[in-house]
Design a protein around this nucleic acid. Structure first.
Length: 421
RNA sequence: GUGGCUGUAGCUCAAUGGUAGAGCUCCGGUUUGUGGUACCGGCUGUUGCGGGUUCGAGCCCCGUCAGCCACCCCA
């Protein structure tokens, strides 16, 4: 039996990587004053059918009827849940809200590298502020997030755009606002389609491919200036690149939109987001009307990316090694001292050390081998000389003998080998 | 959902249409208080599944399922 297509078994080594990811997500979000929330994984299917929410995502909904005949769906993203929750209780919280979520999402689509049917997503949203200051805060958070994995501006770039600029462009060409969505769809796809096709699709808009290209290539996007100045002041300007070609597929974006892209390899967008000032109002039938900006990152793409960038891989491996599941391995050299070893193990564990030992009588050599395999930094030999014990640093085979009662203090002094993650 | 490629032991792979193998991993051992090497031994397969062609199919054909890649779109 294998897991369903697009679903994963997470064995301990896989889960260790997940912990590594999630620790960085949380740590970065908290550095920006964000608080964590979560909602149900299963929602009423209706939530995703409301105006302006899903779009393309609706076709990928994991949807069924529960035993109470309710139409339900596994969440394909958390934003609608967030909107629902915020609409319900936003009066309880001071504005702006800085909320983040680490949660499982589901989309029924064909799986591929970096794209699964069940995945973990990190979402950050800043609600209640419509200024570019909050745009910058969220973009900066995303940059720092990717940097926390050892990625630099050589490995990724945030392509930054603003839908307002397009609305102005369209207004200048006499195109009514209702058709903006269709038009942006053409822009979204023109990178991947032959020029002739784009040209053809532009005809009904009365816009030539040449003028579209000219607009695309004009590096000046005045509406992005405050955001860029903000990022410049933070020293993060190198990580972003204004690019009107990014418009994103989702229907609900109203202002800036951005995508984090890997510069090497052929991975898709690592993360994406933007401003959605009307979504909360639309999803809550007007009961909450908060401007918002946010982004999402998926675990699968990030894990692939780390594998491809040597520096990021090295950092991850170092972190995983430092977080070894076993720090101390008790070698019970004389079986009749097992009870002493148990007492010592308890004492060490109470002090927070990760301790393991063999559960039955075993050759000393084998026990050392086990200490090695489990990644322990030290082996503690308990034998006939008790209450004296030997502590051996496995890395360089340096061994010291001390009284059992001194061990804890000795270890505290050498605590640099204890996990810090 | 569309198209292409692939599918042999837990993993990586081999086997001119003629009795399915190797390496790695794992487990045990190399005489009983010191570890990643070396050596010895052991376990594991209805060759993804179901049909068909053939005296005979891991190999050829069809279907199906799964994986990978591209499209679609996104995290």
């Amino acid at each position: 039996m294998k897991p369903l297509p697009g679903f994963r078994d997470l064995f301990p080594e896989d889960f260790a990587r997940r912990i590594y990811l999630v620790n960085r997500w949380r740590e970065t979000a908290r550095r920006y004053g964000f608080v964590e929330f979560d909602g149900p994984t299963l929602e009423s299917a209706e939530l995703y059918r409301k105006k302006n929410s899903g779009g393309e995502i609706l076709g990928q909904l994991y949807e069924f009827t529960d035993k109470g005949d309710r139409p339900v769906a596994l969440r394909p993203e958390v934003t609608p849940t967030l909107a629902r929750m915020v609409a319900e209780r936003h009066r309880d919280y001071p504005k702006p809200l800085r909320w983040f979520n680490v949660g499982t999402c589901f989309r029924y689509e064909r799986q591929q590298r970096g794209r699964l049917r069940e995945f973990l997503q990190f979402n950050c949203d800043l609600l209640g502020d419509a200024s570019s200051a909050s745009d910058a805060e969220v973009v900066a958070l995303l940059i720092d997030l990717l940097r926390s994995f050892g990625l630099t501006h050589k490995e990724f770039v945030i392509r930054l755009s603003n839908r307002q600029a397009w609305y102005e462009f369209l207004g200048g060409h006499g195109v009514e606002k209702e058709r903006a969505g269709d038009f942006l769809n053409i822009v979204d796809k023109m990178e991947r389609e032959p020029a002739e096709k784009t040209e053809e699709k532009l005809v009904p808009f009365g816009i030539s491919l040449a003028s579209l290209r000219e607009f695309l290539e004009c590096s000046k996007i005045p509406s992005l200036d405050p955001l860029l100045a903000d990022l410049e002041a933070r020293g993060l300007r190198d990580f972003v690149r204004p690019d009107l070609g990014v418009v994103r597929g989702l229907a609900y974006y109203t202002g800036i939109v951005f995508e984090a892209f890997a510069l090497q390899g052929n991975l898709r967008a690592i993360a994406g987001g933007g401003r959605y000032d009307r979504l909360l109002k639309d999803l809550s039938d007007g009961s909450a009307d908060l401007p918002a900006v946010g982004f999402g990152v998926g675990d699968a793409v990030l894990l692939e990316l780390i594998n491809e960038i040597p520096a990021a891989k090295v950092q991850e491996e170092a972190a995983l090694k430092a977080d070894a599941p076993t720090q101390l391995y008790l070698v019970i050299a004389a079986e009749e001292r097992r009870l002493s070893a148990l007492s010592l193990a308890q004492q060490l564990r109470s002090a927070g050390w990760r301790v393991a030992f063999s559960l039955g009588a075993e050759r000393v050599g084998k026990q050392f081998g086990a200490a090695e395999v489990y990644g322990a930094a030290y082996a503690v030999v308990i034998g006939a000389e008790w209450p004296r014990v030997k502590v051996k640093r496995l890395a360089d085979r340096h061994e010291e003998e001390l009284m059992e009662g001194e061990l804890l203090a000795w270890l505290q002094e050498n605590r640099n080998l204890k996990a810090e993650i």
